[in-house]
Design a protein around this nucleic acid. Structure first.
Length: 696
DNA sequence: GAGCACTGC
């Protein structure tokens, strides 16, 4: 890979005018200008712009701290890539990144967020007609492509963090390749016959520049995918991190982690410790073990403060890890992968990495997912160790021998090879891409996974027998931001006159862990959950949680301010052991999908108290996942024939009805079905005769 | 009577 020559700094950064309003503001602007100048990428602005002019596709390899995400879009703006109302679009795998980077860049440009610089993520779009630099999630950009297949408003699209290989990024990478060709072709044809070809909404079509930004290990893959596209390297700015390995493999990594934590605490200079563990259970048990062992230390050595963070932890408790440790104390943060990329904890100088990760994998032939602890990849190990070098030189302790590191996979298996493809395929079909097996994925999913998804889509009535989009159902399903099976449920509910109930249920099903269940208050939490529990199953339980929270809100709501709503809901959630983040997400989803179906001309009707009709609709919607009780109390999943158990978090865990439909089949310690509703087995043959021809 | 990494439309 060619390394970048040092170019002259262009004047734009130096020229940023000091704000005349006040000396403080002026100093602030000057500081920002100095910061920008000091970034490694600043010295190569001219060279980068030249390369963008010369190459239609460019791979940029930039390490942490290079400034590529904040600076490159500004360089492009200054170089005239946003003339005539064109935009530079930057996709990110995570919402939080899109928001924070956009805010930062708006500040650097001294503009109000939503003017020249803005972000668009689900439920939160700050852009306006004057936005020229648009940060967004990869999923959002994909949705835009559905509305404007040539992405005609963009002159440049930057796919950031491409090495993370989310499903959305992988689909984008392939799609953008096609869009770029189509736009070049349109431009060439226009110049040949003098026609003006116009894209969506009559915009003139011009060529599209594509920039893929990636971490170093994976750049070659992208370069090859784009026909040997040029790759440029931009230096990062990180402090050095010393890596230590164990001499021998550790049989008990939890114990090894504990020993390492105390060794650092007792022997190393000040600085906080970050430990990567695989799940909530493990984190909570290590927390207890740290507390226990601390009691065996002399009083003056006990100044170690264990803190935990994982995704389902309520926000207020998550915030604790960001506060500095009390004077004289050292923090030890016990974290899942959430601390690998999503959040950055200040003060970390030491990282303890057992080298493991909990990963979800989908098995299409069984319609089942597994959740296993597996070795992390080299890329992950590097990312984790990098967390020790953000504020000063750091140390990383890998709890395995160096020769084991060499054996690790370079990068994590792309998500597209590990997930249910029905949604991806439906989106591609809606984009007019019919040959899925022949589609130019950077990593092809298995043929079996594709075939299974195509089958599912035609069983759900989204595709015709010859694999074309069914009208209008397929179109409608593709437009909804939901798994196809949930979109189907909404269409059916419209016919069953229980759309209102299904909108709520589907919104609740899209979030995980509605109930928060803290170990210390388990009995209380259970009693609270029982209050909502329906004998018919989890779906009706979710319905009543949503409705009760809504009633509570309606009663207290004196004014409509959003902050007020959040506060009222927060209190209700706390009292009822409901995860407020999850409920908020469900409420946002409800609002969005209700808007979607209304736009499609559906009339949102309710079946009132007729829960029988609603359960029949659930059966008709989720007929692909039904299970029947066996003699020994276990269940047989009708589709795969697997023997499964009801997950203990289900409200039907004890009652064990004869026949149920469910939404999820996951193998952890056992094969569990989750989110179930009791049904009459005869309904299956009645409501899904094409699938259940005979009884049984 | 179990346990759920993360992200997203």
């Amino acid at each position: 890979m060619p390394s970048m020559a040092q170019g002259k700094l262009k004047s734009s950064v130096l020229n940023s005018k000091p704000n005349p309003k006040s000396p403080v503001a002026s100093r602030f602007r000057q500081k920002i200008a100095e910061h920008r100048k000091s970034l490694p990428i600043a010295s190569v602005e001219k060279r980068l712009i030249e390369e963008v002019h010369k190459n239609d596709i460019l791979i940029i390899v930039g390490e942490t701290g290079s400034g590529k995400t904040t600076q490159l879009p500004q360089f492009l703006f200054n170089a005239g890539f946003c003339r005539e109302g064109k935009m530079v679009g930057i996709s990110q795998p995570r919402r939080i990144a899109a928001v924070t980077v956009a805010k930062r860049v708006a500040e650097e440009c001294d503009v109000q967020l939503g003017q020249r610089v803005g972000y668009s993520i689900r439920f939160d779009d700050t852009t306006s007609s004057s936005t020229r630099l648009k940060y967004m999630t990869d999923g959002f950009l994909l949705r835009e492509a559905l509305l404007d297949p040539l992405l005609s408003r963009y002159s440049v699209i930057i796919v950031d963090e491409a090495h993370e290989r989310t499903v959305h990024t992988d689909v984008l990478l392939a799609l953008l390749k096609k869009v770029q060709r189509a736009r070049s072709k349109a431009v060439n044809e226009r110049s040949e016959n003098g026609d003006v070809l116009r894209g969506c909404q009559g915009r003139k079509v011009s060529p599209l520049k594509l920039i893929i930004m990636s971490a170093s290990l994976n750049a070659r893959v992208f370069s090859e995918y784009y026909g040997g596209a040029k790759a440029l390297h931009v230096q990062g700015r990180q402090f050095p991190v010393d890596i230590y390995y164990t001499v021998h493999p550790e049989s008990d990594y939890v114990d090894a982690a504990l020993v390492t934590i105390f060794q650092i605490h007792l022997e190393e200079k000040p600085g906080d410790i970050l430990v990567f563990l695989t799940g909530q259970d493990e984190i909570e048990s290590v927390e207890r073990l740290v507390q226990e062992r601390l009691q065996h230390l002399p009083e003056d050595k006990r100044k170690l403060l264990p803190l935990t963070i994982f995704s389902t932890l309520p926000s207020e408790q998550q915030m604790r890890v960001f506060a500095p440790a009390p004077i004289g104390f050292r923090k030890v943060v016990l974290a899942t992968n959430i601390a690998e990329t999503s959040i950055t904890i200040p003060g970390i100088r030491y990282v303890v990495d057992p080298g493991l990760v909990k990963a979800r994998t989908y098995f299409p032939n069984k319609g089942m997912e597994t959740l296993d602890v597996i070795p992390a990849s080299k890329a992950q190990a590097l990312q984790r160790s990098g967390r020790a070098g953000r504020e000063g030189p750091g140390k990383c302790y890998r709890l395995y021998p160096e020769r084991e590191f060499e054996k690790l996979e370079d990068s994590t298996k792309p998500e597209i090879k590990r997930c249910n493809l029905s949604n991806v395929i439906l989106q591609l079909k809606a984009l007019g891409i019919d040959d899925i097996v022949g589609f130019d994925f950077i990593d092809k999913p298995s043929r079996g996974a594709i075939v299974k998804a195509l089958e599912e889509l035609s069983l759900l009535g989204a595709l015709t027998d010859d694999g074309k989009l069914e009208k209008p159902a397929g179109d409608q399903m593709a437009r909804l931001p939901l798994d196809p099976v949930y979109s189907r449920a909404l269409i059916l509910a419209n016919q069953f006159n229980c759309l209102e109930e299904m909108l709520i249920t589907v919104a609740m099903l899209t979030v995980e862990s509605i109930f928060y269940d803290p170990r210390e208050k388990r009995e209380e939490a259970r009693t609270s959950k029982n209050h909502f529990a329906s004998v018919e199953g989890d779906h009706l339980t979710y319905l009543s949680v949503y409705r009760e929270s809504n009633e509570f809100l309606e009663k207290r709501k004196t004014e409509n301010s959003e902050a007020k709503v959040d506060k009222i809901m927060g209190k209700w959630c706390k009292d009822n052991f409901v995860n407020s983040r999850s409920l908020k997400h469900a409420r946002d989803t409800y609002r969005q999908i209700r808007g979607n179906v209304e736009q499609m001309g559906f009339n949102v009707s309710s079946c009132g108290n007729d829960m029988l009709e609603f359960r029949r609709c659930l059966a008709a919607s989720f007929f692909l996942k039904a299970a029947q009780r066996q003699m020994d109390g276990t269940y047989r999943a009708l589709e795969s024939g697997e023997t499964v158990l009801i997950h203990p978090t289900s409200v039907l865990f004890r009652s064990k009805p004869e026949c149920v439909i469910f939404n999820e089949l996951m193998q952890t310690s056992e094969k569990y079905i989750k989110n179930l509703t009791r049904i009459d087995p005869l309904w299956l043959a009645e409501l899904a005769p094409h699938h259940y021809k005979t009884e049984e």
